[in-house]
Simulated assay, not measured.
Amino acid sequence: MFTKVNEYLTDNIPMNYWYDECIFIVEDMLKNFEDEDWKNLYKELPHKEANWKVKLAECLGNLGNKYELECLLILINTNDNDLLIACADSLRNLDVSKLNIDNKKIITSKIVNLLNKSGKAAQSVLRDLLNKLKG
């Protein structure tokens, strides 16, 4: 299953097709991932380009499994603003109250540093996550 997800995330799919269909296809595949698929994903993650990671982050947040939060915590450790915003957007859908203090501090710091550099839509996403982290 990881191979299929990797193909979707790697392919140079037109953005409108990605958001109209592919994102939902990949999300469904991720819902059916087994432990071995997640292990393969984690193993490959450091070697993937930022665009691949952004697409993956966009598919996370609604899977209802233990892996997506862990995956987002790995992905958010980035200097890529687009990836950081995608991670923040997906994290808003998860229960972040269970994050430890260190993770909350790291995420909060990254968001605060990016907040004034972002457009209004991204700022809204970032502020929303900040509020969830404080709550």
Rank of each mutant, 00 (worst) to 15 (best):
F2D: 02
N6P: 02
E7C: 06
E7N: 10
N12L: 15
P14R: 08
M15W: 14
M15P: 11
N16K: 13
W18H: 06
I23L: 08
D28Y: 08
M29E: 10
L30F: 01
L30Y: 01
L30R: 00
K31R: 13
K31S: 07
K31L: 06
D37M: 02
L41V: 03
L41N: 03
L41Q: 04
L41I: 06
Y42D: 11
Y42E: 11
K43Y: 12
L45T: 07
H47N: 15
H47A: 08
N51D: 15
K53R: 14
K55S: 02
L56R: 05
A57P: 03
C59K: 00
G61T: 03
N62C: 14
N62L: 07
G64V: 06
G64L: 05
G64F: 01
E68P: 08
E68A: 01
L69P: 05
L69Y: 09
L69A: 06
E70G: 15
L72V: 12
L72Y: 06
I74P: 00
L75G: 02
N77Q: 11
T78G: 02
D80C: 08
N81H: 10
N81I: 08
I85N: 04
D89C: 13
D89F: 14
L91H: 12
N93A: 09
L94P: 06
D95H: 02
L99Y: 08
L99I: 07
K104A: 07
K104I: 13
T108F: 00
N113I: 04
L114I: 03
K117Y: 11
K120E: 11
A121H: 14
A122E: 15
A122R: 04
Q123I: 08
V125K: 05
L126E: 02
D128P: 00
D128A: 15
D128N: 14
L130C: 06
L130F: 00
K134W: 01
K134Q: 10
